[in-house]
Design a protein around this nucleic acid. Structure first.
Lengths: 141, 141
DNA sequence: TTTGTTGTAATGTCAACGGTTACATCAAAA
DNA sequence: TTTTGATGTAACCGTTGACATTACAACAAA
């Protein structure tokens, strides 16, 4: 099972908005053509990013614009904004048998390690900012 | 999106086999009653763990038994054995537009960071062995 | 040969994702 | 004020993967 592509779509959209936004009006249609998904998917993504205070989206006249500084946006912020995962990354089987010594204690034994693993992933995402990606991108353009 | 409960089911099953195996014949029915899932789910799980060389399962007479030492089994080994994730943890949107400067370079910019995040998760899982869990469990029993 | 178990195919249900259509709402230009 | 081009969102569909369950062949030991 994988983490939804909403995440990479969101990162892609933000890069487009922050890098190309000075030159073009960044409509959902334009972004959709860069990401290559349906415009409605982009609108849903932008809606989440707007709710997270990362960008602003103008209804009516159209176009998405930056709100937060790219230095202050980490991959983790984006990942959280688009809700890839609610709560725990690892699914746990429900109702282990409390009559069994293993079933009774499986959560006590396993939960902290699962949390640690998830935290390791998320900390790594926290260490990369949108500004970092923009620097890498500007070298390639 | 979450990582399938096959993983926690597998860990639970192994703990049962390694801790209770001296006292009981660990059939899929018995393990199933501890984990509280259908016995066929356990048989599939045990089948994966057997293929990974972690346990042995006797067809006919029945019962699962340890093969590898608990010290040599990490959570990562189990996670790999039951195939929670094939390849990349993060789904990437297909076919970003190569005509667009962002679309053309999004993989170059993003891939390494996604790999790093996944590696952080997996390294954390590598740092915990089944023996560690057994120690914790034996204190609680 | 009987018994209890594993291995596995087949089928069903369910949830999540992503695609798409449709349309109300809105802001700015004409 | 009307037109135009966007956004916001609800609704629905098809696909996919997970997990549950039934069924039964294969098997090993009593």
């Amino acid at each position: 099972m994988k983490i939804t592509s909403r995440f990479t779509v969101a990162v892609h959209s933000l890069l487009a908005i922050y890098v190309l936004g000075k030159e073009y009006k960044m409509t959902s249609d334009l972004i959709a053509s860069s990401v290559n998904v349906n415009p409605v998917v982009i609108r849903r993504t932008l809606s989440s990013l707007k709710a997270a205070g990362i960008i602003d989206v103008k209804a009516g006249s159209g176009g998405a614009t930056p709100v937060k500084s790219a230095d202050d946006i980490t991959l983790y912020d984006i990942y959280k904004a688009v809700d890839c995962i609610e709560g725990n990354l690892f699914n746990f089987h429900e109702n282990p048998n409390p009559e069994c010594p293993v079933g009774k204690n499986i959560h006590a034994v396993l939960d902290s390690h699962l949390k640690d693993a998830q935290a390791a992933l998320e900390n790594e995402l926290k260490s990369v900012t949108l500004a970092d990606l923009m620097k890498q991108l500007n070298i390639l353009i």
